[in-house]
């Protein structure tokens, strides 16, 4: 009946809640609000939203606890809203299953971009057949051909080592979404290894090979203290 997506806003500050609602409403989303963690969990269960915006600084429960509860039975995309300076919280949330984050204070365009990305990935994941290759990914100038294992930028081929290729592919598959250091390490090198240093080194090499100006990367963006994000072809920050 109603084609609009439903977004659950979990935020105890009325002011912020108001303006997020306004933005989302004017961008063709439907919204429902929760002020406490418990309310959030019950609303998520009853209303089944398409995305949850979760503020980590809730009065009654730890935001992370809400996230854990949600993830126990739902794969609904969750974007956490955190305050600046609480990096560890963000990383923890991402590792616990959150899809992305925004930092207060955030610009509206940023928020909208993240929501779009999260929804898109979710749909893609739902529609994916298990075991299928990703085919060809195009992000801006960048083309990643998984079947032939080739990466090219503006037509020119870029030579990547196997590890570098896997990293680029991983980021591209989750384009627009932030991936934590821990996640990337686990995916590339396996669990129970700590290859942080190797990751940095690899990222530096990738930047030098892919980016026009490695000092101002436009494809792979660093999120200090959290991880890396490949920009969305649809233009996100």
């Amino acid at each position: 009946m109603n084609n609009r997506r439903l977004i659950l806003i979990v935020e105890d500050e009325d002011g912020i809640s108001n303006f997020i609602s306004a933005i989302l409403g004017s961008n063709d989303y439907q919204t429902v609000r929760a002020r406490t963690g418990r309310e959030a969990i019950s609303l998520a269960a009853s209303r089944s939203p398409d995305l949850v915006l979760l503020d980590l600084g809730l009065p009654d429960m730890d935001g992370l606890a809400v996230l854990k509860a949600l993830r126990a039975w739902s794969r609904v995309p969750v974007i956490v809203v955190s305050a600046r300076g609480h990096e560890r919280e963000k990383v923890e949330a991402l590792d616990l299953g959150a899809d992305d984050y925004v930092t207060k204070p955030f610009g509206t365009s940023e928020l909208l971009a993240r929501i779009r990305t999260a929804l898109r990935h979710n749909l893609a994941a739902a529609a994916e057949e298990p075991g299928a290759g990703a085919g060809v990914l195009v992000i801006g100038d960048l083309t990643i051909d998984d079947e032939r294992r080739r990466v090219s930028r503006a037509g020119a081929e870029v030579h990547l080592t196997p590890i570098e290729y896997r990293i680029v592919l991983l980021l591209a598959r989750h384009a627009g979404k932030v991936l934590t250091h821990a996640f990337i390490c686990k995916e590339i090198w396996g669990p129970y290894t700590n290859e942080n240093q190797a990751l940095r080194v690899n990222m530096a090499n990738i930047r030098r090979k892919l980016e026009e100006n490695p000092a101002e990367p436009c494809y792979i963006v660093t999120e200090i203290g959290v991880g890396y994000r490949m920009v969305d072809g649809a233009g996100s920050a």
Binding site: R200, A215, E216, V221, T222, E223, I224, A237
Partner: peptide, 14 residues
Amino acid sequence: TPEAAEEIVAEAIS
């Protein structure tokens, strides 16, 4: 913690 100088600069500039 060891950080890549270029990453810090990149984020600041952006």
